[in-house]
Design a protein around this nucleic acid. Sequence first.
DNA 1: GTGATTGCAAATCTTTTGCACTAAA
DNA 2: TTTAGTGCAAAAGATTTGCAATCAC
Lengths: 138, 138
Amino acid sequence: MTGIRPFTQALERLKRHGLRPTRQRLALVRLLFERGDRHVTADQLHAEAAAAGVRVSLATIYNTLNQFTAAGVLREVVVEAGRSYFDTNASEHHHILVEPTGELIDIPASGVQVSATPRLPEGMALRRMDVILRVFRT
Amino acid sequence: MTGIRPFTQALERLKRHGLRPTRQRLALVRLLFERGDRHVTADQLHAEAAAAGVRVSLATIYNTLNQFTAAGVLREVVVEAGRSYFDTNASEHHHILVEPTGELIDIPASGVQVSATPRLPEGMALRRMDVILRVFRT
DNA sequence: GTGATTGCAAATCTTTTGCACTAAA
DNA sequence: TTTAGTGCAAAAGATTTGCAATCAC
C-alpha cells in the first residue's frame, strides 16, 4: 500500500460527496493520507499545514475535518473531554490510549473480540462500537 | 438497595480522602447518590442544585466532581468532544450512547465479553477499558 | 455569473484558575 | 488559629459562526 492510493481514494470520495477540490482541501488530504494511518487534532493539522507552507485558517481546518468525517474519510475519536482526534483509518478498529502522553494506538477490530453484546433497547440500532484501552507506563 | 446506602458510603469515602463535609459537598453527594445510578454533566448538576434551593457555584461543582472522581466515588465518561459525564456508578461497566439525544445507558461489565485483548506495548499496563455502543433510534 | 468555500474575528461553550473571603478542624 | 473550601470573575482552550471576499464550476 503506497501513500498515493488512500490519497486518491479520499479525493474520489470527496468528489462523490460533492466537495470541491479546493487548494486547501487538496493540501489537507495530502497531509492526512500520504503518511499512513494517523491520529491528528485540528491544531496539529493546522501546525503541519503551516510547516508545509500551506496557508489554511483554523476555521477551514475544522470545517474540513468535519466534512471529511461526514463523508466517511475520517473517523472522529473522543478520548478525553476537550480534545478530538481525527483518525485517517476510517475502518472498524479500536484504540489504546497511552494516558500520560495522550498518544493513540490502533488495535485491529479482530484484536478485541466482543463475544456477547447486550440486547439494545427497543427501536435502537447499533451504529458503531468503540473500545478504548486506557493504559499507563509502568 | 436504598438511596441512603450509597450516600453514606460516598460520605465515608470522602472522609477517607480527607475531604471535609462542607454544606456544598453534602448537598451534592445527596443529589448525586440518593437517586440511583445517574450520568450528569457539571451544568446539569448545577441546575439541579439550584432547583433544590442549594446555592453552589459552578466552580465548586467542577472542583467537587473532579475531587469525587479522584476519590473513586464518581467515574468520568467521555463520549463526545467538549462534554464530560460523571457516572455515579464507579464500578466496572460500559455504556450505550443514544446518539441524537446524548442519553447514556449503563451496560453491566458482564454484558460485553471481551474474549481477546491485544498484547499491550512493552512497559504498559491496563488501567481501564471503556466500551461504548453508539446507537440511534430506528 | 452563481453558489460553494475561505478567512478573519467574534462568539460560544466547557472547564480551570487566581484570589479574597468564609468555614471546618 | 490554621488550613481547606468557596465564590466570583477572569482566563484558557476548543470549536463554531457570521459575513465579506474569493474561488470553482
